[in-house]
Structure formats: C-alpha cells, structure tokens
Design a protein around this nucleic acid. Structure first.
Lengths: 192, 192
DNA sequence: AGCATTTCTTGACATAGGTTAAGTATCCTT
DNA sequence: AAGGATACTTAACCTATGTCAAGAAATGCT
C-alpha cells in the first residue's frame, strides 16, 4: 500500500500524521512503461517522483554523445533532479524508467507551498538533500579509491536491484568503465 | 571589506539589505594559520565558514590511511560539511586550512534560527545546496569522462587558486591520481 | 646557518582497463 | 516464425596510470 511508501520516504522526527496526510494528498500515482522519459535534458523539472515499483535512472550525454548513467533510483527512493527543480534551470540530466514502474509525482508548486508553510517538511527536505550530497560524495570517493571490480562487487552487495534489472551497458557507464570491461569482470568473478 | 563577501555569498532575489545585516551580524571573523583544523572526522560540525582569504580543503582517509582531498574551498566560497551539520552526525570529513586564511564563522544554532524565521535564507539555502549537489555530480561525471591530464587542465583553467596554493600531493588525490602521475603530467604539459 | 623533513621529480617496470572487431544470444516487431 | 535490431561475450592488442625506488629541491626548525 502506498501509505507505507510516504511514511518511509517522508520520515522525520518533526513529521506528524496530519503533515503526512497533507503531503500525501498532493501526490499523484503514475504508471510507467519501460524507457518512458520523466525529464529530458534542456527542459526544466516541474516535479519529483517517489518510486514505488520498478527502477529509474538518470543519465547525461558525454562529448561523443554516449549516454552516461549517473544515478539509479530503486524502489522506495526519490527521483529528483534537484538543481533543475530548485534553481528553476534547464536540466542537463535525463530521467528515464529502466523497467515498467509505478511512481508518485508531486508538482513543484505544491511542494513549494508545503516547504514554506510546514516546518517538518523543511527540515526533512534539508536532511534529504544532505543525504544526497553525502551519497554523491561517497560515490566520487569510491570512484577514486576502489577498482572497477570492487565497485561492481559493492553494487551487487548494496543495490542488487540495479544488477538484476539494468542492462549491462547502463551499469558499466554508471561504474565508469567500458561495457566490455564489465563483461570481462563478470567472467573473472565466475571463474575465480 | 567583508560586507561584499556577505553580499556575494548570500545573494538571492528575495534577500533584502535588512536580512543581510541580520545574517552578517551572526558571523564572527577568524584568522587561521596554515594547517589549522576546522573540523575533525568523528566530531559533529557546529558551524560553517565563509572564506574571505586563503584556501581550505576537505579530506577523508582511505582504507590504507592515506589522505584523499575531496574538496577545495577557494576565496569567496563556503566551507560547510552539510551532512554532519544538518543531520547532526559525526563527520567522516576533515576540514583544514591549506594556507593562512581569514574566514567568517556562523554557528549552527544561529543559522537554524534564521532558517526557520526568514524565507529568503531558506530559499537561498536550498539553492546553495542544489548548486553543491550539481557541482559534486559534475565532478563525478568528469572523473568518468575525462582523462587525468584533462582534469588537471580544467583545474588550471577554472580554479587557478588551487593549483597555485595547494601542494602537489593534495591536488593529485583530489584529481584521483598518484602524485607521481601528476608530476609526469606537469612535465609533459611543459615539453609538448 | 645547517640539519631534518617534507615535497617534488624522474625512470623502469607492471597492470587495469580501453579499443576494436567479431561472434553469439536475446529481444522486438510484423 | 523470420528478420533485424539490440545486448552481451570474447579475444588481441594498446595505453594511461600505478608502483616502487632513488635523488633533487624546497621548506621548516633549532
């Protein structure tokens, strides 16, 4: 049931059941097919999404036009292109469903109203962004300190949904390696 | 004069001169010597710092105990270990002056009061965090898509203060390469 | 000023991961 | 079910960067 999704994702010490109801009432359920686009580069984000079911990814294009997957959003996580949504700027990122999916959408204007009228969601929002920043920094650090195969092993361990549902090419670009290299790493993991 | 520092760093459409005065009055000037620690890993951050003069860095320790510089904070930028300060958690990062420096400190409690009483700083804060997130993501992407020498060239071009003031070893770990490799890259840049 | 420490450079060698290209398997579409 | 596109694997070869070790240069300390 979706109620538990909101409870899980909007959890914060200051959050009351009434706050949660008000927040939830502003979300709208959406059913996505595989490869549906939720945001395209060049456009300004107008909403963010709670992922109930399925897998979502963020990607950018590099100088040669190749897609680089920059984030995977799993079930019970939030897909939000913060710098476009909150700075009202055109996005460099794309957001796309990797699988069929069910998400709950909230519009910028509705969130904005909550943010300035409800202390709990303000604190929640700042904490959520802090966690995002932390995770993004951790990922940078791991790109520096861990080998490609270590990074793949960590992914298997900590975010198995990705390994199970995303195509190899997307996982490879997310790990910062060529797809042939990931294929080789998989092979070596089996034989050794 | 420090007034321009606050104007520059706290700029936002909603920010009034009175807001700015109130904010500025809560900052305290600090003079730092080279290598002073502003935050140590394991402790919880209780303030953030506007950098007026000098260079600051963030670093973590990897599994072998080596220091990895994760961020440089130049003049007219803000040194804030967000995930410790706003989640009230022990920091994994250290903050240290690279050179002698002058910074303006604001305590968490004072900021917290502003954040819940002043719309402009709320909006400013969210935008600042959005920009941080964007920059951190861009850095991740560049670690994937650019070679080490490209990353070094970009650093020279976009953040010359770092190249001029930080020791090679810190720059190398920031770029994700061995210090001997950076030395070689420098040499090749001169001869070619 | 002189010694110790740290920082930086250089070179020989090793290796993870990139590139290219070909083959196989899987998935869609009609 | 057939045909074409896409996804994945494999292999040969290449290159950027890592590792280690030694020396030179710069810096800091007493």
């Amino acid at each position: 049931m979706a109620q538990t999704l909101f409870q899980k994702l909007y959890s914060h010490p200051l959050m009351t059941p009434q706050d949660l109801d008000e927040i939830a009432s502003l979300h709208q359920r959406m059913v996505l097919s595989k490869n549906d686009m939720l945001l395209q580069e060049g456009k300004t984000a107008n909403a963010y999404y709670l992922v109930e079911k399925g897998l979502i990814r963020f990607f950018v294009h590099d100088l040669d036009g190749n897609e680089i997957t920059t984030q995977f959003i799993c079930e019970n996580e939030i897909a939000n292109e913060v710098s476009s949504l909150f700075q009202r700027l055109p996005s460099v990122q794309n957001i796309q469903s990797v699988t069929d999916a069910v998400v709950w959408k909230i519009e910028f204007n509705d969130f904005q109203h909550l943010y300035h009228s409800m202390e709990s969601i303000r604190e929640w929002g700042r904490e959520w962004m802090s966690r995002q920043l932390f995770q993004t920094q951790q990922r940078s650090i791991e790109m520096i300190t861990h080998s490609a195969s270590m990074r793949y092993l960590q992914l298997i361990e900590h975010r198995p949904q990705i390994v199970q549902q995303a195509p190899l090419k997307q996982i490879a670009s997310y790990l910062g390696i060529a797809d042939t290299s990931l294929s080789r790493i998989r092979k070596e993991m089996i034989t050794n």
